[in-house]
Design a protein around this nucleic acid. Structure first.
Length: 427
RNA sequence: GGAGGGGUGGCAGAGUGGUCUAAUGCGCACGCCUGGAGAGCGUGAGUUCCGCUAACGCGGGAUCGCGAGUUCGAAUCUCGCCCCCUCCGCCA
């Protein structure tokens, strides 16, 4: 959520920055400013009347003790009370409208973000490694996986429908190994605290990070309870400190969490529907940071480096892309994507999206910080980044490490997580 | 899921319709005292919104789990919800 005072004081600047996203949200800035002004006018009147009522009511109490007649004052205050009630009803209605609009407006892009209207406007920041060379035509992961008997898409569809994955045998073990590998790197080498959060999320938490109210149709929701399946660990983990004031000296707080991620992805059919590139459920290890405002962007660079480290250790070729204004997520002020090379697809796949949401989510979730002397305070900045998404990492691994005979030779770093096994061979 | 108990400031804990501007204690900050510390004494402290101000500030509203309601006036009374504790049921 944007700072209402920023809209109040610099509506044109806010409009201009929103316009670079291309979502048309700048049109609502005027509505917010107008409602805000109306609200404050009514508030001033209501609060003045409340001050009077408080004062007179106190006097009534004292006069009553002395046995004096106070019926006239009581009648007058009844009138005042009715007027206050009317004003407050009006104010509540405006608050409701204001919230409805404010919660739907995306974050302002950081000045360092390139302006563009879609992915074509993104800019590549760097590449690491080289695409692997093959003496044969590299196969796509679904062929590799099915031939090895480690992935079974038809049976996953039998259980759940299209867009779900069933891992089997060494394939299931590889998934589990990757989760442990990622968690170990980030907790042992990068200083993150491991979190295992709930996967079912209430509505307020979903609003806190920005999934709701705007993206309701992308979320899985339970029928009988107001609960949603976590679309990313960012939601439960960023909400850990909801409604809290954190001591400044605790910052930055770094968490990492494994969760499955559930996404309806309505209307995503077509490209990328084959295999496990775009699915309704995938595993992910997520990194979350709570920082002071002034360190947020340094921490973002470190976060990206932490996510990259995973791919470096696995020896996977990748590139880092800075998203343009039009391609960024709703809550983000600046986002880097990390895209890993998948030889079977002849494409880079997004396995990580690292964002600084600044105070956008902290405002919604009301997460603040305060120095010991109380002088330095404000909303924390919240960052999140995949470290990394598993399904696509799995794709890149199978396709990069495939051998001519159909087997897969896995990186040595995974051996301890696979009971010493480094090769998956046909059964 | 059922029954009962509870939710008050950083913490503990009093308060069941009117100086509650929330007692008291602990803890905290500052000052006095001291060679220094402690004790003692004093002062002050949450969060948030609105208005005025160049600013330091000043005035006001709200806030006793959350939301409605009754009343001139609600921490206190009524209703709904959430969470915690105890017991029962069910259960990996």
């Amino acid at each position: 959520m944007l700072d209402i005072k920023l809209i109040r004081d610099n509506p044109d600047a806010v409009r201009a920055r929103l316009a670079t996203r291309g979502g048309g949200d700048e049109a609502r800035v005027g509505d917010i400013a107008a409602l805000d002004e109306q609200r404050r006018k009514l508030l001033t009147e209501s609060e003045g009347l409340k001050a009077e009522r408080n004062k007179v009511s106190k006097e009534i109490g004292l006069l009553k003790l002395k046995g004096q007649d106070v019926s006239a004052a009581m009648a007058r205050m009844k009138q005042v009370g009715d007027r206050i009630a009317a004003l407050d009803t009006e104010i509540a209605a405006i608050d409701g409208k204001l919230q409805n609009i404010a919660l739907m407006i995306p974050n302002l892009p950081h000045p360092s973000v390139p302006i563009g209207k879609d992915a074509a406007g993104n800019s590549e920041v760097r590449r690491w490694g080289e695409p692997p060379k093959f003496t044969f035509q590299p196969r796509p992961h679904w062929e590799i996986g099915e031939k090895l008997g480690v992935l079974d898409f038809p049976r996953a569809a039998k259980i759940s429908g299209s867009g779900f994955i069933l891992y089997k045998g060494a394939g299931a073990r590889l998934e589990r190994a990757l989760i442990n590998f990622l968690l170990d790197i980030h907790t042992r080498e990068h200083g993150y605290t491991e979190i295992s959060p709930p996967f079912l999320i209430n509505r307020n938490a979903m609003i806190g990070t920005g999934q709701l109210p705007k993206f309701e149709e992308d979320m899985y929701r339970l029928r009988d309870d107001e609960l949603y399946l976590a679309p990313t660990a960012e939601v439960p983990v960023a909400n850990i400190h909801r409604e809290e004031i954190l001591p400044e000296e605790q910052l930055p707080i770094r968490y990492c969490a494994y969760t499955p991620c559930f996404r309806r992805e309505a209307g995503a059919a077509g490209k990328e529907t084959r295999g496990m590139i775009r699915v309704h459920q995938f595993d992910k290890v997520e990194l979350i940071k709570f920082t002071k405002p002034e360190t947020g962007y340094d921490e973002l660079e470190k976060l990206v480096a932490n996510a990259e480290r995973v791919l470096q250790l696995l020896g996977l070729h990748y590139r880092v892309v800075l998203l343009c204004t039009g391609d960024m997520g709703f809550a983000s002020a600046k986002t880097y994507d990390i895209e890993v090379w998948a030889p079977g697809q002849k494409a880079y796949l997004e396995v990580s999206s690292c964002s600084n949401c600044e105070d956008f989510q902290a405002r919604r979730a009301n997460i603040r910080f305060k120095s010991a002397d109380g002088k330095h305070r404000g909303f924390v900045h919240i960052l999140n980044g995949s470290g990394t998404a598993l399904a696509r990492l799995y794709v890149a691994l199978l396709e990069t490490c495939q051998q001519a005979d159909g087997s897969v030779k896995l990186p040595e770093v995974l051996a301890p997580y696979l009971g010493g096994v480094t090769e998956i061979k046909p059964e």
